[in-house]
Nucleic acid binder design. Structure first.
Lengths: 223, 223
DNA sequence: CATATAATCAATGATTATATTGAATGGTTG
DNA sequence: CAACCATTCAATATAATCATTGATTATATG
């Protein structure tokens, strides 16, 4: 191979390796997973991850240099968000690979969620069809700001924390499909447990909003 | 957040970070890019990358531990291949992000390929339509073993090294669409240059075979 | 302007990743 | 079985990454 070609390839793969490197830390993957829901401040992210602010800031700098996140300043706070849809696609591809290929992922997930679920979750496609048929209520149990940043078209927002005292807002005849951040988020599972215990018909969507969006299914953002 | 939930998330994201880490080196990305075409021996990969065999073997071990590649043994040689389609999807997502988001990638590509292309390449969808219309010849200019491992349905194989002496196999009336390994591979570009210089009508497909396959377009493997 | 808040920076030591070298392994060939 | 080939392993030195700490910057508030 020619020298010029070798230099070209080295430079090019170096750039792509930088991208992979930016995601090569558990905290940074978790940050992307969270930011895929909605923008957040550094302090907020730090408390969600249970880490010192300086450490989270350091990781955010790595993601920023890799152009994976962007900043919006508001007063003395900075809100980070994912730079574009391709960032979530990388994380999603990694997640899919891990789920299908790594026994360890399966083991960890199964041992945490074992026996907590009686009913099979719905896939995105299944829910999409059910919505078209008009026979379900879609329930978003994430925090309100994440709902506002984007939610499944037609979904109702009741954050998991408020669910118990807002049960009367939900119908008892139609089936309720709850969803939250993604396949490893516990909120929708908790909601289904609570709802079925109270006599509602409820099931869980197996994916989160970013996946729903990535499938090209309809999303609404509150202006 | 509960302690158990924190431990669960840490364990889970740790697994996914391992996957990203496995790709966090330019040589390993290049290896995946090559292996996405066809299986190869260690020695062969080492000479393609211009690196010592021991170094390539070391990188292959990293990919193997991450379950991204598998081995087939044949005599005293070992042939590595990508473990499944999801591996290429991760690399493709990284590549797409880099292409759309990183100015540096654009600069490197442009400075290497500047002025070498007179004609716009075809997209996968465009070629797919042209094939249905039946008015093009699809030309695979990769090495023969890569063609055998999988090629665009109906494509003709003339490795770039043999192109000059096999020109008579190609028609002069129909347009020839050449393709190779991927957007950064030079073979298809060289083929188009050669063919147009000889009076053929020729253009390039902008993607490589693994991308074509990922788009769900028809692929044939030689048995 | 002083104080408080949010975020970043800089320096540190500890850990982990990397390339290189040469030796060891496993299989093939004569 | 000896010689050989392809690959891996092991050891080492160098470089990069990481968490932590405390200092610094930037903005808001009184």
């Amino acid at each position: 191979m020619s020298e010029a070609k070798r230099i070209f390839k080295n430079q090019l793969y170096e750039q792509f390796a930088r991208v992979a490197k930016a995601l090569a830390h558990p905290h940074r993957i978790e940050l992307i997973d969270l930011l895929a829901q909605a923008e957040r401040s550094v302090e907020d992210l730090a408390s969600e991850l249970g880490l010192p602010v300086a450490n989270v800031s350091q990781h955010l700098q790595v993601l920023r240099i890799a152009q994976m996140v962007e900043i919006r300043r508001e007063g003395s706070r900075k809100f980070y968000r994912v730079a574009d849809g391709n960032v979530f696609e990388i994380w999603r591809a990694i997640r899919t690979f891990g789920e299908e290929r790594l026994a360890e992922v399966d083991r960890i997930v199964k041992s945490f969620f074992s026996d907590r679920e009686k009913l099979e979750p719905l896939s995105g496609e299944q829910l999409s069809r059910r919505i078209e048929d008009g026979d379900v209520i879609v329930l978003d149990v994430r925090p309100e700001n994440e709902f506002n940043a984007g939610h499944i078209e037609g979904a109702v927002s009741i954050p998991i924390r408020d669910l118990k005292r807002r049960l009367k807002e939900l119908p008892r005849k139609r089936e309720i499909i709850a969803y939250c951040r993604g396949p490893y988020c516990v909120y929708a599972r908790e909601a289904v447990t609570e709802l079925t215990a109270r006599g509602f018909k409820a099931r869980r969507l197996e994916i989160g909003l970013p996946d729903w969006k990535a499938l090209g299914l309809p999303v609404t953002a509150t202006r």
